[in-house]
Each structure stands twice: as C-alpha cells, then as structure tokens.
Amino acid sequence: MNRTSTHRRLLAAALCFTLPLGLIACGNDTPGEEALYVGEAAAFLASSEEGGDIGGDAVADADGTTLQSMATEEVDAITQEPTDTGGLCDFSARRQAVLAKYDDDGDGTLGNAELRELKADLGERREAIRPRLAQLGERARHWAFWRVRWAFDEDGSGTLSAEERTALVDAMEARCERLRSERLEKFDANDDGKLDETERQAAREAVRAKWRAKRQEVLATYDTNTNGVLDDGERVALRQARVAAAQERRETLMATYDTNSDGTLSTEEALPLRKEIQRRIIEGRDAEE
C-alpha cells in the first residue's frame, strides 16, 4: 500500500470519530458525498485565509481574462491588511463552520436540498464562489481556490470526480497540519503545543510586519503622487504589472510542459504540472507568513 492510500485510510478513520454522524461513509476509506463537499468548502476557506501564492503555477492554463481577475485579487491582497488572527490552522473547525452554515434544519447533517445549495455555491472551474459560502471567511480568494482546484482536476474535465475531490480535501488538510506545525515551531515559546494570547499576538504581528514591508515596496514603485495609498490609476498600473509577470511565468511553464509546442497544454502535458502543484500544496509551499 502506498503512502497516499495509507494517509487517506487514517484520515477517514479519524473523521468517523470527529465529524457528525452521516458525514462520512465509515467502514471504508472513501468519504461520502456530503463529507467531500463540506471538505471542499473548508479547503476554499483555508486557501482564502492564508496569504501567499498557493497553486500559483496554474497560470499555465489561465486565459487573459483569468489573469486579469487573478491580478485584481492579488492587488487587493497587497493593499488590504491581513485578516490572520495569529491562531493555528484548524481544518476541522472550518468543516464545522461550513456544516453549521448549510445545515438549515439543525439536524447535524446536510439533507438533499442543503447539499445541493452547498454544491451550487462552490461552483466549478472558473465560476466564482457564491456569496453565502464566501461570507464564512474574513475574505474570499476565489482565484486562489481556482488554482488549487485546477491542480487536482487531473483529467482536465473542468469538474472534480469523487476521487479528485478526495485528493484535494486530503491535500488541503495535510497542508493545514504542516502550516500548524510550522507556526507552533516559530511562536510556541513555552512548548505547550498551543498558542496563548501573547504567542498569538507575536504571530499576528509577524504577518502584519511582512505585509507592511511588502506594501511599502509596492508604494515605493507605484505610489507616484506619494500620498501613501494607491489611487485608481496607480492600482491599474500595479495590476498590469502583475498580469505581465503572470504572462512571463506562463511562458516559462509552457516552455517546460508544452512538449509539442502547440501553445496549449493537453491533458497529458498538464498532468506533471498538476502533480507538481499538488506536491507543493501538500508540503505547505507558497504560503506567506
């Protein structure tokens, strides 16, 4: 049995005890439909709440309109103060938040109508996450999550199969655990395995300090009237620069993965890139603290 299968079996067993009855088909290692969609929604919250460039190399399959939208989201992240509270990544808490949001009758599980609403709110491929789900987080990074979902759509169908969705949820949960461990290593000064308020404040301030430094670099280049903020025209210039950078990144990726040089990635050509992005997600790469 390979390591991925082992991980999924252990994860499924744990979820049988930690999730409400009915969320998962216990007794085998395949999560039930409800557990998968609740997990996917939790993954959306996770990718929204962290900073950085999660799944960034998915720009290889992004068209011009998508690159513009991604750049707008990136500019917003640069100009808006981080929402990070300094706490530890908790994927289970995100699952519970999703369940509470959609469990309209309060019976602890999602009925058919409730599950249909969650599915619709998640959308697919380039569709935006709908407001009800987006409101669960402090902010909504639609295109960050699109990049994650693209990486796990291995057959390039534009939708995730149950197996692909399982892999996405497993990967984002593994990422959460890695980011949790990294934050504990940095800020758990008394080594008690959790963050007290002083340690949380230190983690929160570290995130904000890095954001302030990045914002200052941007202002130094794009705040042409030196008023300390980016006006509309300056934001346009920054967005255009981000689009140009993404286009350059895309060209570099295509040079590696577009083996027949036809200007597009076939399903076969895209698969190694998708696998590489998956690996980086699981390892907690491209997260900004």
Rank of each mutant, 00 (worst) to 15 (best):
A220L: 11
L160R: 09
V169P: 06
W211E: 10
D192V: 08
R235N: 04
E217M: 12
A171V: 03
Y257Q: 09
C176G: 11
G156M: 05
Y257P: 13
R200D: 03
V229N: 12
D258W: 08
R250Q: 15
E234H: 07
F187H: 15
E197L: 03
E185C: 04
S181R: 12
M172K: 00
R180T: 00
K210I: 14
T221C: 02
V207H: 06
K210S: 11
N227T: 03
R215T: 01
T221W: 08
A189T: 11
R180H: 14
R239V: 07
A202G: 05
T221I: 14
K210D: 11
R180N: 11
L195E: 08
E205S: 05
R183K: 13
L238W: 04
A162L: 09
E251Y: 05
A220D: 13
D192E: 03
R204N: 08
K210P: 00
V236E: 14
E234W: 07
L230F: 09
R178I: 15
T221Y: 04
E163C: 00
A189W: 03
R212P: 03
K214T: 13
R204K: 12
M172T: 04
S181C: 04
G228V: 03
A174L: 00
R178E: 09
T252Q: 13
D232E: 06
V229M: 11
D223H: 08
Q201R: 13
S181A: 15
G233E: 11
A213F: 07
A174P: 03
G228S: 08
T198A: 14
A213P: 12
V236N: 14
L230M: 10
M254V: 07
N225V: 06
L253G: 05
A189D: 14
L168F: 06
A255W: 08
E199Y: 10
G193P: 08
L179N: 03
A244N: 06
E251I: 07
V169N: 00
A203V: 10
T226D: 12
E205C: 00
E217K: 14
G228R: 04
V207Q: 02
D196M: 06
T166M: 02
R178A: 06
V229L: 14
A189S: 15
R165A: 02
V229T: 13
E199I: 06
V169C: 07
D170S: 11
K186D: 11
A209W: 01
L160G: 01
G158M: 01
E199V: 10
D153W: 09
R165L: 12
D192W: 10
R165I: 07
T226S: 15
V236D: 15
E163T: 12
A202E: 04
D231R: 08
R178T: 08
V207Y: 02
A209R: 13
R180F: 05
A245L: 11
V229A: 12
T252W: 02
K214N: 13
Q201L: 14
L160W: 05
G158I: 00
D231Y: 05
E185V: 04
L179Y: 04
G193W: 02
S181F: 03
R215K: 13
A162G: 07
K186C: 09
M172N: 00
A174C: 02
L160T: 01
Q240L: 08
N190L: 09
T226H: 15
Q216F: 01
